[in-house]
C-alpha cells in the first residue's frame, strides 16, 4: 500500500492523465447510454470535473478543487495556466485568420461592451443589496467582469476583504455557470460559427468559462472565443479602477 501511494505521489502528472482519461471514459459512457448521445461527452466530462472540484474543495477546505488532495496534485499541473495556454494556442492551428478579420469589429464592440455591461450589472445588483460606497460597488462590479479583475481592483482602491471575497465569488459564479450552460443554450443564441464565437468570447470574457463552454459545444469554436476573451481581463483591469470607478463615483459619490 505504501508503495502504491509512493508511486502515485511520485508520478503526479501521469496520475492526472490517467484520471482525466478515466473521467472522459465515464463521460463517453454516460453520453452514449444515459443521454443516448444527446449531450456531448465533453460537456459531461467538464461537469464531472466541476463535481470533483466541489468534492475536493469540501474535503480539504482549499481553493484549488481536486488539486488540494495531495494524491491528485498533478491535476493542478495538468489544468494549470501553463498547459491550458499551450493547448488553447494549439487549437488555433487550423483556425482561419480571414474569419477572425471578418469578425474584428463585432469582436471589439463585444469586448468593450462586455466589460462595461458585466461591471454595470454587478454594481447595480450590489446597490440593490444595500451597498452604497463607490469603492464597494466598483469592486463587486469588477468581480462580475472576472474573478481576477475584482480582487485586483479592490486592492487598488482599498476595498475591505469581505467585499473582495464577494467580488471573487461573483466572478466564479459567472465562470462556472458559463462552462455548464453554454453547450445547452448554444443553438438558441446561434453559437455555431466563428463570428458568434468571437462575440461570445468578448461578451462573457471569463477565459476559463468561455473556452471550456465552447469546447463542450464544438471544439472548432474555441480559438475564436479565446481570441477575444484573452483581452477581456486586461481591458477590465485597465477600465475598472479608472474610468469605471470615476463613473461610479460621479453617480453615487
Amino acid at each position: 500500500m505504501d508503495a502504491l501511494i509512493a508511486t502515485v505521489k511520485d508520478n503526479d502528472l501521469v496520475v492526472a492523465f490517467a484520471l482525466v482519461g478515466l473521467v472522459m471514459g465515464v463521460a463517453i459512457l454516460i453520453s452514449k447510454f444515459l443521454t443516448r448521445g444527446k449531450f456531448q461527452a465533453s460537456a459531461i466530462a467538464i461537469i464531472l470535473g466541476l463535481v470533483l472540484a466541489y468534492v475536493g474543495g469540501v474535503a480539504t477546505g482549499g481553493e484549488d478543487g481536486l488539486a488540494d488532495i495531495s494524491l491528485f496534485s498533478g491535476i493542478g499541473l495538468m489544468g494549470g495556466g501553463m498547459l491550458i495556454n499551450l493547448a488553447i494556442v494549439a487549437t488555433g492551428f487550423g483556425a482561419s485568420f480571414d474569419e477572425m478579420k471578418k469578425s474584428g469589429l463585432g469582436g471589439i464592440i463585444a469586448l468593450v461592451l462586455g466589460v462595461v455591461l458585466s461591471f454595470v450589472i454587478g454594481a447595480v445588483i450590489a446597490w440593490f443589496f444595500g451597498y452604497r460606497d463607490p469603492i464597494d460597488l466598483t469592486t463587486i462590479g469588477a468581480g462580475t467582469a472576472t474573478y481576477i479583475v475584482g480582487p485586483v481592483t479592490g486592492a487598488a482602491l482599498g476595498a475591505g476583504s469581505g467585499v473582495i471575497a464577494l467580488s471573487v465569488g461573483a466572478g466564479l459564479v459567472k465562470s462556472v455557470l458559463t462552462m455548464v450552460v453554454t453547450p445547452f443554450v448554444a443553438k438558441y443564441i446561434g453559437l455555431n460559427n466563428p463570428r458568434s464565437a468571437i462575440v461570445f468570447g468578448g461578451l462573457l470574457g471569463t477565459t476559463s468559462g468561455v473556452t471550456a463552454g465552447l469546447a463542450a459545444t464544438d471544439k472548432r469554436l474555441v480559438p475564436y472565443g479565446a481570441m477575444t476573451s484573452t483581452f477581456y481581463t486586461g481591458l477590465g483591469l485597465l477600465m475598472a479602477p479608472s474610468v469605471l470607478f470615476f463613473a461610479v463615483k460621479a453617480l453615487v459619490g
Partner: peptide
C-alpha cells in the same frame, strides 16, 4: 485541449 479543460474544471474553486 478538452482533457486539459476537464483538469482545469476539476481545479476550480
Amino acid at each position: 485541449y478538452i482533457p486539459i479543460v476537464v483538469a482545469m474544471a476539476a481545479t476550480q474553486n
